[in-house]
Amino acid sequence: MTPTPRAALRRRLVDRAMTGLSFAAVLLALVPLASVLGYVVAQGITALNWAFFTQLPRPVGETGGGMANAIAGTLTLIGLASCIGLPVGILGGVYLGELGNGRLGGWIRFTADVLNGVPSIVVGIFVYTLLVVPMKRFSALAGGAALGIMMTPLVMRTTEELVRLVPATLREAALALGVPWRVTTLRVVLRTATVGVVTGVMLAVARISGETAPLLFTAFNNQYWQSRLDQPTASLTVQLYNYAIAPYDDWHRQAWAAALVLMTMVLVLNITARLVGRRQVSARRSS
């Protein structure tokens, strides 16, 4: 049975139409990205000035001031989170990559992915009940712990992926030279995977530096410089949130400025990590 020309034409038209629709979907997905980036840059640049980086927030009614303490707070929180997330994440990732082929490995992998999907606000409440209630105060430590919990599964899974890409011949060569297994793992396997692990860490830092919800009841907020880690701490994200929902125009300007600073930081980390990571992975896979 030969197809009629009409049917053939119809099939070709459907083919074209669906191709067009799927391309349209890509354009549609890019509209919000372009709009968000455009507004953050346009609004942020007019609001951003030197005082933003050097001064403390001003009380309601006074214009000006900055978010110097919030920038310092965000960096402190990232540092504290890294103290938890990096060692546990990297070593756990090495476990999954090197020893995790059994049932326990499967469970850890599964739980890490599930933990990755736990709402960040729930992590915040967990840390609140665990640290804030016993310490009887909000603190940078609690905020760092909440972010560290979020960071761990991310770092773990990317480290695993990179450790798996290390060729078995490298391990065998080291072991054959009589190098003990732990030294082989740390100084051959992990060291070979270093660039990839670092990019994974950058992605994780980018992710947690934009987190707000887990900080609301842990690090809380602070209008002044924090001098101790057991005190409430300002962060760019919480400050941005408070300013965005407040009814003052000057605070809205500051919120856009904070958004620009935060977005620049997150995008630079993300783009660098992905560019470096992609090259690394493709080079390793093709060799």
């Binding site: 997905a29 953050v40 992710r207 934009g210 977005m263 995008l267």
Partner: peptide, 13 residues
């Protein structure tokens, strides 16, 4: 990249 935009910035927008 869209996924990397912090949700608080998306909320501001």
């Amino acid at each position: 990249l869209l996924a990397s935009i912090p949700s608080v910035i998306l909320g501001l927008w």
